[in-house]
Design a protein around this nucleic acid. Structure first.
Length: 491
RNA sequence: GGGCCCGUAGCUCAGUCGGUAGAGCAGGCGGCUCUUAACCGCAAGGUCAGGGGUUCGAAUCCCCUCGGGCCCGCCA
């Protein structure tokens, strides 16, 4: 806000007037306040047009709207608990204070009020104000009182304005935190240990994505921000921690769109002495619990009710290869050469590089033929081995791995394996991947292979985007609406 | 990276065929002792995202740049 508008000048003059009257426009405290909900419940037993003069209460919050009627006025005050009408009358406040308040107070100011629970003649719970205190003068005017901020760009760049203008936005971000708390409780109760692993790595691994690169002065070497938590958490299984999970930011130097953000919150969990069937049951229980919480948080919101209901079990299952062959009309996909798969992928419009792996081409075919047909929460299972270097080979299906991906109609939500534990096979699978891609971004993590040599117990692991989980259960169409401050370009 | 769309007052939005900028809210002044987006009157508020071009004349048509949205591609 470089230029001072006429509106801001006006408000600064009010600040100056306030100061010259010996009052602090930015005081330090307002002790003894209660939430607006407390006043509301104190009003519950009062009849319209009456007040409880024996009770005095203090509330504080942001002034939203002032409605003046000459010698009486109404103002709506917002706090985290909701909103409350303040009743201001010359009778209670006195001529001079009443006049000063109404001339120097603006919507957007943060004020404290002391008064009596009261119900207006029209039946609105209110505080009959005895005294007011300016707690913070707002210099910048708030957005339009009815429409708020509509411009998507402005809402993201200045999320604080979006939040202060919209109780719905506040409720959505509060719900995000409560739902993540539910996720934590679920893993904690199952005996999983929450851990923190490094975000700064010499080589980012565990997924294939372009990393952010920065420089470490201490090491005098480039370091990368993590693109996954997987390789660190599996080392902990080698170390005997048996059940671990992490909720943390991962960073992928890729484009931002409605389901991708360069930094996002990932949960990964690893569970020793269990396989991907166990993990599927765990995930079903987690989705059920999170969806139930979402349903109870927004009982009157039809969007949330419809969205969350889709995350209640049972869920559909689709075999990757059967599903792809059925949807595409192709057959014997696992018997086809890389060149054949490449031309099939090219035929459906994919522009991935010629030297991509067979797994990449199969993924492209799946994305084209199958993903658009997924209309409910579905476990896609048993992918071709070529798509997945970190999973164990399937016990009974040749050329496959034990893996599931959880899809909604809108995006991939979770990815889980029976984890590969054989260090020699791990090296071979990495080499296969590297050789086909010829891409040194995905450098082999030798220390991870060394860790496997010490022995990792049989285990299953899962990873999912927390932001996407929130999108799914709350029915939010854009990942930016689940992230408080998404990355934006300079203006 | 490609395509389509958008950017007008602090905010929400109009702006016709190219004729020189409009409303509501907020703010200012005045009125009103029960409103709920209060109401009534008056006045004020603009680099029409930025730059260039066409034209007697551009918010409007053309080109470039910036920012954003949607779709496609890419992101094992």
């Amino acid at each position: 806000m470089a230029e001072e508008s006429a509106l801001e000048r006006e408000r600064r003059e009010k600040v100056a007037r306030w100061r010259s009257a010996g009052r602090d426009p930015y005081p330090y405290e307002f002790p003894g306040r209660v939430g607006t909900d407390v006043v509301r419940s104190a009003c519950a037993q009062l009849s319209s047009g009456s007040e409880d003069l024996a009770t005095t209460m203090r509330v504080a919050g942001r002034l939203k709207i002032v409605r003046q009627h000459g010698k009486t006025a109404f103002a709506d005050l917002d706090d985290l608990a909701g909103s409350l009408q303040l009743m201001l009358r010359v009778n209670e406040l006195g001529e001079e204070p009443y006049r000063v308040w109404l001339s120097d107070l603006d919507p957007g100011d943060i004020v404290g009020a002391e008064g009596h629970p009261s119900v207006s003649r029209r039946g609105e719970p209110s505080l009959l104000v005895r005294s007011l205190t300016l707690l913070t003068k707002a210099i910048a005017p708030p957005p339009e009182k009815y429409h708020g901020i509509q411009d998507v760009e402005e809402r993201i760049r200045r999320r604080y304005v979006d939040l202060l203008a919209s109780p719905e936005v506040r409720a959505r971000f509060r719900a995000r935190t409560l739902l993540v708390r539910e996720v934590r409780a679920y893993f904690d109760e199952l005996g999983f240990l929450e851990v923190e692993t490094p975000a700064l790595l010499r080589v980012a691994g565990g997924a294939a994505a372009a990393p952010f690169v920065t420089h470490c002065n201490y090491l005098d070497a480039d370091v990368q921000l993590r693109i996954a938590e997987e390789l660190a958490l599996k080392r902990l299984l080698v170390g005997g921690l048996e059940r671990v999970y992490e909720i943390g930011k991962v960073f992928r130097n890729e484009d931002l769109d409605s389901t991708h953000s360069p930094e996002f919150t990932e949960l990964e969990a690893y569970w020793a002495y269990a396989d991907y069937h166990d993990m599927r049951r765990l995930m079903e229980g987690l989705l059920d619990r999170v969806a139930s919480r979402a349903l109870s948080l927004f009982p009157d919101d039809p969007t949330v009710q419809a969205a969350a209901a889709r995350f209640r079990p049972p869920f559909a299952t689709l075999d990757f290869v059967d599903g792809l062959e059925h949807a595409s009309g192709l057959s014997d996909l696992l018997g086809k050469s890389r060149e054949e798969l490449r031309s099939l992928a090219r035929a459906v419009g994919s522009t991935v590089p010629d030297n991509s792996s067979t797994g990449t081409f199969l993924d492209k075919l799946f994305e084209h033929y199958v993903e658009p047909t997924i209309d409910r929460v579905t476990f896609v299972v048993d992918h071709p081995a070529a798509t997945t270097p970190l999973a164990k080979r399937h016990r009974s299906k040749p050329s496959r791995v034990e893996r599931f991906e959880l899809f909604t109609s809108d995006f991939e939500l979770a990815n889980a394996y029976s984890e590969l534990t054989d260090p020699d096979e791990q090296v071979a699978r990495f080499r296969e991947q590297l050789g086909e891609r010829g891409d040194d971004r995905y450098a082999l993590d030798q220390d991870f292979v060394d860790a496997l040599k010490f022995g990792m117990p049989p285990a299953t692991g899962v990873g999912f985007g927390v932001d996407r989980l929130i999108m799914g259960v709350l029915g939010i169409p854009s990942i930016k609406e689940t992230i408080l401050f998404p990355l934006v370009r300079d203006r």
